[in-house]
Design a protein around this nucleic acid. Structure first.
Lengths: 340, 340
DNA sequence: TTGTACGCGTTATCAC
DNA sequence: GTGATAACGCGTACAA
């Protein structure tokens, strides 16, 4: 079913059908009605490829995600969901592209094949070749996360540096003197994953400012690793009384490790972090955490992208989220003398 | 950058460039080399829309997911990830479409706008209008899940009926006499969600076969609901000693509810279910469960879809997975006299 | 309102 | 065997 067939059956020209549909030229009510009747009868919809070819835009955005093989975190998933939702509201389709690893063909297809009007890039590194690639291509894009030179692109991000600093201050206020930062997995941090590095920086500054002793470790993004990580931390640094973390997926395991060591949260040990709200609430005890507004950020990213597509030369815009820490049940006063 | 520009700079005609790229006609090595040099220099890639328009195929598949607003379960996410991964390996892009709720425009765009060569449909109901819609449209599609009339379409699915029956038999073998089935959320079951109904059926049959007493309840897909659900079950049915469930997202909460009631798993109470392996392993204690091979199933779905696209009139194919129950730490002999 | 050129890659057809 | 020409797919938008 194409526009010519509709035109023939309605007894008008192809362009009249097009105008009747787009409304870019007035068409008599009677003609419009007749055309619509034929369209409804045959279930016609314009061919997306033909329209894209002519208009030069696809009404589709690309969403570049970390390779699917390495399981996405809950927060990342919330980003994906909110981006898809926001895009659907704007009548945009979303093309998914796993990047990194062996899937660079997918990324290349999307960027150079003009398959999308713009791209949202997740899991950005401080030095990210995909950003360089997109900048060079001229395709509008927005990052969920930012590189080392944030002014070179549009992005939405979480202010991990500030948030982790706040976590440390919160712990210090509660009297904790020996705190640990549990970061995301070592590979991610090693390749320059921004949040990991910014969390380190925030941690170091705050620890210095409050005169605490601080230790930093990386930890796999799952419960098992969280447990192992805590067990090792307790073994090597018996003086610790609190943990700050950006590794939400590992928190359940940390709780388990503490419990195994005979430490009750928050009585004997405190944990505070940065996490998606529903994730923090579903832990036991609920995690005192800065609640990342992931769904709002996804929507914001789509919004920024739509603007960039509409007006590419416009200056870059940024949105840095620094949500307050929600007090739940996982932090308490440092126990005199520390655990055990 | 279009093919004409490449042809001009390489000093050949457009068709020669096309033939050099597609290999559908021999082109001299020297010419091919010159063309490739220009392509590399300018970074040319054929316009996907033009190619789709001419070829009548988009090299893209649609993945219809539940509306993003209602958080996806871990298993669903694994399906998405594995589909994206498998599609990328086959050089196919994936267009995501949230269906249901207010997002039916997205589904319609995909189906009637010829934006994809085929569709993978998730979260299928016993009576599913999207299946009817797709069958009517003639667009190749494969279900992850199946309707009441499974022969009318191609699908991969999990044999919840058999698996839940196996769970019940496992519990019966351990001496449990009073067991409960905790289903997915009530809305899902109410609208005819297949796994929910098939699990019920398998549960009822097995309970009858073994002469047990069984109670069934629906439960929201999150830990909080799981906890509330277990607390209510224990209050109303003090004789229960075991639970079988297909609601993996709620299991952590069930553990919590049991623990609050002073019941240790597996000493005082057993839980067995159907879940993604890594999910079952990450629970504490690890869940004895039939491990759904979600990644393999996603890949299989893509495979079936590729075949359907290549040969639409071919008979439908199906793949029903019934993985064995992996014994972990969550089930044990029924305690004499039951709990408390 | 209508005729028609255009966007761009593919491929059948014709020429060397 | 190799290269060039032109038609095609289909919706859009300008000129008439």
């Amino acid at each position: 079913m194409n526009i010519g067939e509709i035109a023939k059956r309605a007894g008008v020209s192809r362009s009249t059908v097009s105008y009747a549909l787009t409304g870019k030229r007035p068409v008599s009510v009677e003609t419009k009605r007749r055309i619509q009747a034929v369209i409804d009868e045959l279930g016609y919809r314009p061919n997306a490829a033909a329209r894209a070819l002519k208009e030069g835009r696809t009404r589709t955005i690309g969403l570049v995600i970390p390779p699917a093989s390495q399981r996405l975190t809950d927060m990342q998933l919330t980003f994906v969901a909110s981006v898809v939702d926001a895009a659907a509201r704007a009548d945009l389709d979303v093309l998914l592209s796993p990047s990194g690893g062996e899937h660079d063909r997918s990324f290349e297809r999307i960027v150079t094949g003009r398959r999308v009007d713009g791209v949202i890039l997740m899991e950005i590194r401080l030095e990210d070749e995909r950003v360089a690639r997109l900048r060079h291509s001229g395709l509008p894009f927005v990052g969920i996360g930012r590189t080392r030179r944030p002014e070179e692109m549009s992005w939405v991000d979480i202010d991990y540096e500030t948030l982790i600093a706040r976590c440390v201050h919160h712990l210090a206020d509660l009297g904790h003197r020996h705190v640990a930062l549990i970061n995301r997995n070592a590979e991610l941090v090693a390749v320059g994953y921004g949040p990991g590095h910014r969390a380190q920086s925030g941690f170091e500054h705050a620890v210095a400012e409050r005169g605490l002793s601080g230790v930093q470790v990386c930890c796999g993004d799952d419960a098992q690793s969280g447990q192992a990580c805590v067990e090792e931390l307790l073994a090597r640094h018996g003086e610790l009384t609190a943990i700050a973390t950006i590794n939400e997926a590992a928190v359940a395991g940390m709780y388990r490790g503490l419990s195994r060591a005979g430490l009750a949260v928050p009585r004997d040990f405190s944990i505070v972090g940065v996490a998606a709200r529903h994730w923090a609430e579903n832990l036991h005890p609920p995690l005192t955490a800065a609640d990342v507004p992931a769904d709002e950020m996804g929507a914001r990213a789509v919004e920024l992208l739509i603007q960039r597509i509409a007006d590419p030369p416009a200056p870059h815009r940024h949105h840095l989220a620094a949500p307050p820490i929600s007090l739940r049940g996982s932090t308490g006063p440092a126990r005199r003398g520390g655990p055990a």
